[in-house]
Amino acid sequence: MSENDLRVGVFVCECGSNIAGSLDCEAVAEYAKTLPNVACSIVNKYTCAEPGQQEIKKYIKEHNLNRVVVASCSPLMHEPTFRNCVEEAGLNPYLLEMANIREHCSWAHLNDWDGATAKAKDIVKVSVARVRLLEEQIESKVPMTKEVLVIGGGVAGIQSALDLADAGYKVNLVEKEASIGGLMATLDKTYPTMDCSI
């Protein structure tokens, strides 16, 4: 794809007042329009909510977008959400980039409106630069071995092993000691039922 064919959509999330309370989301979205290859840039109240995601999908179709930047929270929080969203709109999920303007910006600079706004613009600028160079990635598929290892035969290991085994999966329960039971087996009675532990 040549550089001219790149069409980036930027979606700035207000996250209620979590972001919009500390920085100027409109200004960030306006600024994003000046960045290279940005075809559209809008503000959503909650980008992760259903209407927000519908908007992304709508814009991808209407503006023929092939790259998406979501400026909202941490990718550790919502990258899977937005990857699914762009995939449903026909884009490869790896053509999405998240600009973290909440955890790393609005929440860290609650009382510096101008500083936080300037920083958010910069974060979006860096994300747009990156998304332009991202490529499609294909996740390979591997067969799933339908057997499980449970390490530890205390109350948690026993419950896990029984649930899995009852569901029909083969379970290998490995216990370090000579018997299962763990610390629970050394207790006389347990609360709140006040009955015996074993």
Partner: peptide, 19 residues
């Protein structure tokens, strides 16, 4: 505990360690 010992789907390895 007893159920674990006799469940047909559970291989129980006691006095064992994952290495």
């Amino acid at each position: 505990m007893m159920d674990v010992g006799r469940h047909p789907n559970i291989n129980l390895y006691t006095y064992s360690e994952v290495i």
